[in-house]
Amino acid sequence: MIKVLFVCLGNICRSPLAEAIFNHQIQKLNLPHKFKSDSCGTSDYHIGELPDERSIKCANDHGIKISHRGRQLSHADIRDFDYIIAMDKSNRSNIYKLMDTYSQTHDQIHLMRDFQPNNSESEEVPDPYYGGEDGFEKVYQILDESIKELIAKLQKEHQVYA
């Protein structure tokens, strides 16, 4: 089973939306038995909380359900997940710091937009927290596009097909 972890700061906006989109796409490909995904934050701001209402609404508008409670990145996550996908450079740096306490390599860490085809805009998924619903929709579009490519890469790399 291939394990993918999506990481943002508080685990209430971007990463739970990414996890939900990933699960939705995997389900459509009839591959839920081949992948496991989760999401978390590098901070402890929202442990145990539901995702932001705007993330939930955005997902629902696209026919996707979010089932998640906020949690913080742990050492066990670094050990247990094959791929750790950070939403931005700041959170990637926080992941590296946690990893470096165990002298592990950074090969499993990626930025979400590394997978977005034809992206010339930014390396980071913007944090929509302080904006309106349109920011959540923009994030959804970035994640949806990036995750399709991520899944295609994982399928090819691991020879995983329905």
Rank of each mutant, 00 (worst) to 15 (best):
P51K: 11
D114N: 14
D114W: 12
G48A: 12
R92N: 02
V125P: 00
T42P: 09
M87R: 05
I64R: 06
S39T: 09
H68C: 08
Q104S: 13
G48H: 12
H46I: 01
Y96R: 15
D82I: 06
S74G: 05
I84R: 03
A59P: 00
K34L: 15
C40Q: 03
D127M: 14
G70Y: 04
L73S: 03
I47C: 04
I66P: 02
P128A: 06
R79W: 09
N119W: 00
S93M: 11
S37M: 13
I95L: 05
Y130M: 11
R69E: 09
Y102L: 13
T42E: 07
H62A: 00
E123Y: 00
H46K: 03
S120N: 15
D100N: 15
Y102A: 12
G63I: 08
Q108A: 12
S103A: 11
D100C: 03
E124L: 11
D100L: 07
I85M: 06
I95K: 01
D52V: 04
D52I: 04
K57Y: 08
L73I: 10
K34T: 09
I85V: 12
H33Y: 12
A59W: 00
K57E: 11
V125C: 03
R79A: 12
L31W: 07
D82T: 06
R71L: 10
R54L: 13
D52C: 05
D107I: 01
L98V: 08
H75Y: 10
G48K: 11
R69I: 03
S39L: 10
H62L: 03
Y83E: 05
I66L: 04
Q72A: 11
H62I: 04
N94E: 09
Y96V: 13
P51S: 09
S93R: 12
S39F: 11
I95D: 01
E124N: 15
H68W: 09
D100R: 14
Y130I: 08
S120L: 08
S43C: 02
P126T: 10
T105E: 13
P117W: 00
P117C: 00
Y102H: 15
S122F: 00
I85Q: 07
K36D: 06
N119I: 01
K65G: 04
K34C: 14
K97W: 00
Y83F: 12
H68L: 11
F81C: 01
F115S: 03
K65L: 13
D80L: 10
D80I: 07
I56P: 09
I66W: 05
I56A: 13
I64Q: 06
G41F: 06
S103C: 08
R54T: 06
E121T: 01
H68G: 05
R113K: 15
V125I: 07
D114Y: 14
D61V: 03
I47K: 04
N91I: 02
I56M: 13
D77P: 03
G132C: 05
Q72N: 06
S120W: 04
P117H: 04
R71D: 12
S74Q: 11
Y45A: 10
H62C: 02
F35R: 08
D127Y: 13
H33S: 14
P32Q: 13
Y129Q: 07
P126S: 12
T101Q: 14
A59D: 01
R92I: 07
D77F: 08
K57N: 11
Y130S: 12
C58M: 14
I78H: 01
G63W: 10
A86D: 01
E124M: 12
G131A: 15
Q108C: 12
S122R: 01
S103V: 07
K97F: 08
Y45G: 03
M99F: 02
S90T: 10
E124G: 08
